[in-house]
């Protein structure tokens, strides 16, 4: 029933799928930093429990806590010296926002009611001012919502 051309096609399709699965396996092994865990934080409790700012954990490790709101990020600019591992925690106080550091794999949704955590290991070549934007529509001034992340080496 299956002719030769069909076999060639099926095998090519399977090869594509295996390559894609392999790339996922590789990403997971090498520390794929996607937001998956969530911490529940009801908006009423947030003011005391979630403070925006940068904590230097030593050895190139940082924790950056960011508040996303209509329309901006607090803080709107952070500076990191020679970062190796940056734990970014973001919390929205109103609607859904996005957080994407342009030119990197950092790309996550920020849902009100939940803290999003992303672990970012910036490559050595990352240097200077990085642009971080809200990439989910969040209201009439959505396009004004961005922040700067300055990396110094």
């Amino acid at each position: 029933m299956v002719d030769r051309r069909e076999k060639v096609w099926l095998v090519s399709v399977l090869i594509v799928l295996v390559i894609l699965l392999g790339s996922i396996a590789y990403a997971l092994r090498t520390g794929y930093g996607v937001a998956s865990e969530a911490i529940v934080l009801p908006p009423e409790k947030a003011p005391g429990l979630f403070q925006p700012g940068v904590k230097d954990l030593g050895g190139g490790r940082y924790q950056v806590d960011i508040i996303a709101y209509q329309w901006g990020f607090r803080p709107s600019k952070v500076e990191l010296y020679n970062p190796k591992e940056v734990v970014i925690r973001i919390y929205s106080i109103d609607v859904i926002h996005g957080f994407q550091i342009v030119g990197t794999n950092v790309n996550a949704m920020v849902l009100p009611g939940y803290i999003t955590t992303i672990v970012w290991k910036p490559h050595q070549s990352v240097n200077g001012t990085m642009l971080a934007i809200c990439n989910e529509y969040c209201g009439i001034a959505h396009s004004a919502m961005y922040m700067e992340i300055v990396i110094r080496r």
Partner: peptide
């Protein structure tokens, strides 16, 4: 693809 999606999401 779980990982590639990160580059293109939104």
């Amino acid at each position: 693809s779980l990982n590639l999606n990160n580059v293109v999401h939104n």
